[in-house]
């Protein structure tokens, strides 16, 4: 580790700037990881644990003992008797300052002890009910389904429509092509917040309000995607297209059999981004979708946290569900993503 640390810039000695640099990296990593890690760990805590203060780092639950003669498992306590000897017992009941306990070693014998002499025992455990309950009892399964539907359909449409447009704008010189391209680019900077109201009017006019297709259709014709694909397709030699034309390929066949396969790297980048964009979209679905059965996961999560402010064990588990797909994509494809961003400035 030290060897790794000191190897910066190929010098044998570490100077002050090296130390500061590493301090920055480690601090930054902690700052990024701790809130997420904390939310992740907390999402496995049972309701009682999550509301206790000071909090424990790891999710814990009360330990339980199964003792002969008792139908239900008893909560485990550590009992320290007068002699200072400690042993694990099961708590039967507690009344005032007295507690009735039973030693698993002699299940028939009940002991009455000082309530102050016993201490609750916990074990590390994961509360999976945090995850299963919201999916069963609340509409999270519907939200999840809606999110997956919007994400998948919008991404497929984005890839098809954007690549067709990019093909035309990169490989043909036709009247109006520059105009179209400039118009698209100029709206690259035009945010939703400026056209929120009229865009919603269009949705209403098309009878797509409170409809998932309203969310999908208005997001697929991304200028960003067309731009990214066009820049890539410009690097494919025009000779290939002419060779294909000589080879009697129709224009659609050229697009499908030559251009699309050769644009695979750019298509992959756009696909990744599209999935992340659509999965994370918030403001636009918030405007378009009004009934809960049409909510996406993000909307559902927001509505739930507004309604059930104390149900943090559910809020956190669903937060983890919402960040999981993006995290998995990132784990496997981070190189494509970071390089795609660095080379195209797309976010």
């Amino acid at each position: 580790m030290l060897g790794f640390l000191t190897r910066t810039r190929g010098k044998s000695r570490m100077d002050v700037t090296d130390i500061l640099a590493w301090a920055w990296l480690i601090l930054g990593t902690l700052v990024i990881a701790i809130p997420i890690g904390w939310a992740f760990l907390s999402s496995f805590k049972p309701e009682a644990e999550i509301n206790s203060f000071p909090p424990t780092l790891l999710p814990r639950a009360a330990e339980e003992l199964v003792i002969e003669g008792y139908d239900e498992p008893l909560p485990a306590y550590l009992w320290t008797d007068e002699t200072g000897e400690a042993r694990t017992v099961g708590l039967v009941r507690r009344i005032g300052l007295k507690a009735t306990v039973v030693d698993p070693a002699s299940p028939g014998e009940r002991l009455s002890v000082d309530a102050g002499a016993i201490e609750k025992q916990t074990v590390i455990s994961a509360e999976w009910a945090n995850y299963t309950d919201p999916l069963e009892r609340f509409a999270f399964l519907t939200y999840l389904k809606n999110s997956v539907f919007v994400t998948v359909v919008a991404t497929i449409l984005t890839l098809v429509l954007n690549s067709m447009a990019a093909f035309a704008l990169s490989k043909y010189r036709f009247r109006g092509s520059t105009t179209i391209f400039v118009l698209m680019l100029s709206t690259l900077m035009l945010p939703l917040s400026v056209i929120m109201v009229p865009a919603f009017m269009v949705i209403v006019g098309l009878n797509l309000a409170d409809n998932l297709w309203g969310v999908i259709f208005s997001t697929v014709a991304t200028p960003t995607g067309v731009f990214l694909l066009r820049q890539y397709m410009l690097t494919i030699p025009d000779d290939l297209i002419e060779a294909a034309r000589v080879d009697a390929a129709s224009e659609f066949r050229i697009y499908w059999r030559i251009i699309l396969p050769l644009s695979a790297p750019a298509l992959a980048v756009l696909a990744i981004f599209s999935v992340i964009w659509r999965w994370n979209d918030f403001l636009w679905p918030l405007i378009v979708l009004s009934s809960p059965e049409n909510y996406t996961l993000q909307l559902g999560l927001n509505a739930f946290q507004g309604q059930f402010t104390v149900q943090w064990h559910y809020i956190l588990s669903m937060t983890v569900v919402a960040l999981l797909p993006v995290t998995l994509i990132f784990l496997f494809l981070q190189r494509y993503i970071t390089e795609g961003v660095a080379s195209s400035g797309v976010k």
């Binding site: 030699p237 000779d239 290939l240 002419e242 060779a243 294909a244 000589v246 080879d247 030559i258 050769l262």
Partner: peptide, 13 residues
Amino acid sequence: ISMVFQSYALYPH
């Protein structure tokens, strides 16, 4: 007609 291009223009994929 058929044509041989300067760059060959072979379909790389």
